[in-house]
């Protein structure tokens, strides 16, 4: 049972009941959990949970048993961009025992979805730091925007490079759509690869959107790209990051 609301104004009414600004609040929570001397942390990466509420509930149950420190959702929480869809997903994901964050997917941009997503979850581009690792979460759904909105936003990345948080030695990029996929602005795919590698010691890239499990050295430079499937495939990644580097596993549930 989702959020109980007897009055339906309109599917696209942006009428947000309950918790807002999830990402900022959960990043604060994370910062409280982790000091600077983090030896090791683990996180789960899920994506594309749109209109698979039952499977998302199962995923939450599965993740809660895995002892991860936080969860990243790669976007597409909604199928139609409808306001209620975001609230249903938020309420299910709030069943997670640990902080979680959500990116913007292309489906989330439909109708008034982009507005609702930003109210419930936050800005489409954001970052956070765990230990010495910088997570850069980017909106890469270029097909949903015209040129007045830069996607991917290189200015956002430039600002971040110019104001690098203290103690950052490594970087992980997270996005909904990878370069060369249908939604990406593929005119800047190579530029994107070059520019992201300006960041300190990029470990790997995470993406969703394609609904299949993927693992590829996309630009053939030795840095891996991991694509997590849609939640109906009942699979997700868990990454363990420590001083030596990182390892990962694919969990079936």
């Amino acid at each position: 049972m989702g959020s109980c609301n007897a009055i339906d104004i309109h599917p696209y009414d942006c009428n947000i009941s309950g918790e807002q600004d999830i990402n900022r609040r959960h990043i604060q929570e994370l910062a409280g959990t982790f000091g600077k001397n983090v030896q090791e942390f683990r996180f789960a990466f899920i994506s594309d949970t749109q209109r698979w509420y039952d499977e998302t509930e199962d995923a939450v149950r599965s993740i809660n048993g895995k002892g991860v420190d936080f969860v990243i959702h790669g976007g597409d929480l909604s199928d139609f961009g409808g306001t209620k869809e975001f609230l249903w997903q938020r309420d299910i994901l709030n069943g997670l025992d640990m902080p979680w964050l959500a990116l913007l997917g292309n489906h989330d941009c439909l109708g008034s979805g982009e507005q609702a997503h930003s109210v419930v979850f936050g800005e489409p581009n954001f970052h956070f730091v765990v230990g010495d690792v910088l997570f850069v979460c980017l909106n890469t759904n270029a097909l949903e925007f015209d040129y007045s909105t830069p996607v991917p936003d290189f200015d956002f990345m430039a600002d971040l490079l110019a104001n690098m948080p203290k103690g950052v030695e490594r970087t992980i990029f997270v996005m909904h759509v990878r370069p060369y996929a249908d939604q990406f602005n593929n005119n800047v795919a190579v530029v994107f690869d070059h520019y992201t590698r300006e960041f300190p010691n990029v470990q790997f890239y995470l993406f969703g959107h394609e609904h299949t499990l993927m693992e590829t050295d996309l630009f053939e430079n030795g840095i891996m790209w991991y694509g997590t499937p849609s939640i109906n495939r009942r699979q997700y990644y868990i990454f363990t990051v420590n001083r030596e580097g990182y390892s990962y596993e694919v969990v079936d549930f």
């Binding site: 049972m1 989702g2 959020s3 109980c4 609301n5 007897a6 009055i7 339906d8 599917p11 209109r51 698979w52 509420y53 039952d54 509930e57 199928d79 139609f80 409808g82 209620k84 869809e85 249903w88 299910i92």
Partner: peptide, 26 residues
């Protein structure tokens, strides 16, 4: 009591969604 197509499609494939998710009072 009304339901809109998007909610019908969503509720049809998910046990999670209950009566008030699908229907609204007007």
């Amino acid at each position: 009591f009304g339901a809109t197509d998007l909610y019908v499609i969503s509720a049809a494939t998910n046990k999670y969604l209950g009566f008030w998710d699908l229907f609204g009072l007007s």
